[in-house]
């Protein structure tokens, strides 16, 4: 009987999990609350020392982040200097890829009205695509509206300060992140036949999206980047800087072979924005 009961639990659990991906974590309530509290404290600390999106800084700031005798990183930073002059940092809160991408692209739209119009049309239509895929309209439209508001803000050619201000307003900024996550999830699911091959752990694309894409603070990997780049048709170049041998920084362009508009610096677990 015990056995049968637990199967039942598993089954129902699974059903809810698949449909809503919503588990009532009653199994570990007190524990969860302690974890939440601790996570909140950590987030608080990160928040006070890092703006969501920083001012643009000379790339030389990177040199001071590593020990002078840390030759691997110091060599790679030198290599990075050959191509880039500035960096803009994002808060390391698990949403940095989306925030870096969102800000960097909207910033570039301030000086490119043609791309702005194209992007606006794509962004505008994207909500309908998501709704057609099964996302509930009233739960996603606020995120979409906030995203569109920012694109329209760019259309009015505001100062950079205003755009930076919006991206540092936690509410606005997080809503943009949610929408970019939804776009990523929507694209992955639409193209699930292709992306299924890249998902580890025997999960379906939908499960992957509900566990690794849509929840806030879940970090991004290649698969997220390629999906978002393709969903919005914006090419992204990522410079990878880690402890690997070689003294040079390797890069990847998403999608492969495209001409990059957005330049990001990846260091294990984190993305910042690069400028030539």
């Amino acid at each position: 009987m015990e056995h049968v009961k637990s199967l039942h639990a598993c089954r129902v659990n699974h059903q809810v999990s698949f449909k809503g991906q919503l588990l009532l974590g009653v199994n570990c309530l007190a524990y969860d609350e302690a974890i939440i509290a601790q996570q909140d404290r950590i987030q608080q600390e990160i928040a006070t020392s890092n703006p969501l999106v920083s001012d643009r800084q000379a790339l030389t700031v990177l040199q001071n982040e590593y020990a002078h005798d840390d030759s691997i990183y110091q060599l790679k930073i030198k290599d990075l200097h050959k191509k880039y002059s500035y960096i803009r940092k994002t808060r390391p809160d698990g949403n940095c890829f989306y925030r870096a991408f969102g800000f960097s692209h909207l910033e570039s739209l301030l000086e490119d009205s043609k791309e702005l119009q194209r992007f606006k049309a794509v962004a505008s239509k994207s909500k309908l695509d998501l709704v057609n895929e099964g996302f509930t309209e009233f739960t996603i439209e606020d995120f979409h509206n906030t995203f569109m508001d920012l694109i329209e803000l760019c259309e009015k050619q505001p100062g950079l300060k205003e755009l930076l201000g919006s991206f540092n307003d936690q509410n606005v900024s997080d809503y943009v992140v949610v929408y970019l996550r939804l776009l990523t999830s929507g694209y992955l699911q639409r193209e699930h036949g292709f992306f299924q091959h890249f998902i580890e752990g025997g999960r379906s694309v939908k499960e992957f999206c509900q566990q690794e894409v849509e929840p806030m603070s879940k970090e991004s990997d290649h698969i997220h980047i390629i999906a978002l780049a393709q969903a919005l048709d914006v090419s992204i170049l990522v410079e990878y800087m880690d402890r690997g041998e070689g003294g040079t920084v390797n890069h990847h362009v998403f999608p492969e072979g495209s001409i990059p508009r957005i330049f990001l610096l990846y260091r294990p677990g984190h993305y910042d924005i690069l400028y030539k």
Binding site: S17, G20, Q21, L22, L23, L24, G25, V26, N27, C28, L29, Y31, D32, E33, I35, I36, F135, T136, F138, T139, I140, F143, V178, L182, Q210, Q211, E214, P215, M216, K218
Partner: peptide
Amino acid sequence: GKKICLSISGHHPETWQPSWS
């Protein structure tokens, strides 16, 4: 009268999504 929490923790990979309601 006891709060039931609706998500999180490393024990469940699933977690709350803002597009839920």
